[in-house]
Nucleic acid binder design. Sequence first.
DNA 1: CAACATATATGAATATTATTCATTGTTAAT
DNA 2: ATTAACAATGAATAATATTCATATATGTTG
Lengths: 307, 307
Amino acid sequence: MLELRHLRTLNALHETGSVSLAAERLHLTQSALSHQIRVLQDYYQLSIIQRSGHSVQLTDAGKRLVLLAEKILEDIRVAERDLARITQQAAGSLRIVLECHTCFDWLMPIMDTFRSDWPAVELDLVSGFHSDPVSLLKKGVADVVIGSESQPQSGIVHFPLFCFEILAVLAPGHVLGKKRVLDAMDFSQDMLITYPVPETRIDLIRQVLMPAGVTWQRRTAELTVAILQLVASRRGIAALPGWGIRNYLDYNYVIARRIGANGLWSDLYLSVREDTASLRYLQDFLQTINRVCFATLDGIKPLKEMR
Amino acid sequence: MLELRHLRTLNALHETGSVSLAAERLHLTQSALSHQIRVLQDYYQLSIIQRSGHSVQLTDAGKRLVLLAEKILEDIRVAERDLARITQQAAGSLRIVLECHTCFDWLMPIMDTFRSDWPAVELDLVSGFHSDPVSLLKKGVADVVIGSESQPQSGIVHFPLFCFEILAVLAPGHVLGKKRVLDAMDFSQDMLITYPVPETRIDLIRQVLMPAGVTWQRRTAELTVAILQLVASRRGIAALPGWGIRNYLDYNYVIARRIGANGLWSDLYLSVREDTASLRYLQDFLQTINRVCFATLDGIKPLKEMR
DNA sequence: CAACATATATGAATATTATTCATTGTTAAT
DNA sequence: ATTAACAATGAATAATATTCATATATGTTG
């Protein structure tokens, strides 16, 4: 019999176009999904996906079910917000600390959505830089930290968001563009352009340059566009998340290269106090981030569960 | 996490107003439902039902979830019809034999619904009387029998519909109206008014009068209204399903009494050939009967699974 | 074209969880 | 007060979703 789990699977299948990727996103194995699909096809006596060479494609029947899934899952989200409202669980505050500067890019539209969905929740960004963002949760100054912290601490819950690759960004025609992959040494010649945050907060420096003993020169800029302008005008090179520069790459405003053979990857978590973790609107906030980010950001990958 | 099973339960809970009755209708135990409700309440951290004395009542949150359930379950029905259409499983024929005369009453509106839902399925009633209706299935003359047959036969599948009580129908002020419960002897004085079918097809005769060795006088009428007219004008008494005479009872056109201490009950099954059983539109037909009958017919009870 | 990497399918084993069973706790009726 | 009807609960069981290990299929690469 049809179950919501199947609809969630169909949805992921539709967005990823692959059983394995969909499985990862749902934190299940590829096998589990394969079995689910089989059950569905047996139940309805029709095929839902078609193997076209290497990946899979949804059949017309599959597409119809995806349509159903989208509708139903949205209806459920709406109903759950109503439930929260009915039981007085819809009011509160969500003061967010952003450890990752670029994250503004995807967080902005999500905040807009959230504000209209939860008008009674005060949504704010806690500005300024903080050496230990998670401590702000304990102090009660903030409610949510979006960052790379995942060390278990009593009273704190870390929800995994996703992991993404940080790419070196160069001006078109830059000599390093000839290389397919850059290494630590390649950063010793050019000016490194970063956000104005401490060195230890910059993954490239902490994970690549410092371990390799390479020295560097740095200048800062507040906004992503400013950094890209400097790079494009050959004032230096930068290291930014792949999804943050997609548009600029498409227009050949800048070019990007992998850092190190396996790439430089960064994990993103959403951390809250334990008492915040079970709030309906926090759960919805999380769900929205997951849904929207995986649907709109390129090249991000799911992260293992861990709290 | 919320599952469709919970929504089906909420729905049944809403319609029956009782955990036990809802459980029966879903062919589950009362305990199973009780556990389901508990899980839901724990998950959402709110109460869905409230024990008001003996039975249960839905809270506002519960009512919101019922709304969700109705919407979602209807969406699924629509989608499943679309699936059938997409995969060419939406055309065929459904020639119905009605063993129980009164069943016209509830079948009519269901047939209307079905016709608009499945325009490519030829829906017909096979007229006339048949000593062995199920044999018509094997002969290929009919596709569905609605009757009391439930004996396992190879190649035939019996789906249980519901069971209902057959009541004695009297004119208001009839002397037998003084009794709370009638027995076989009470039928020996008055004219018995029935549909024009063989005696063995009349539950009152087969199960009450014949076993008791009572003799009776009988006259027939084609339509339920005609039978009721005769009863109301004191030409005799009848035995009809409770749900078939509800309106007439409400207006005091006739009165009804139980037959025997435990009442006279009749079981209704829908029988098809094995190859018909898995057809999507047959499944939908069954679902519709169940849904509509339990929602609109008074005093019917679920039947045990059996095929 | 072989060898390999990648992606999906499948059967058996396992883990999870829904349901039942047996029982207790409530409430209403007689 | 006693009983009947209904709901809740904990433990046992049954059902089934998921994983694991492996096979199969399809591109890719040297």
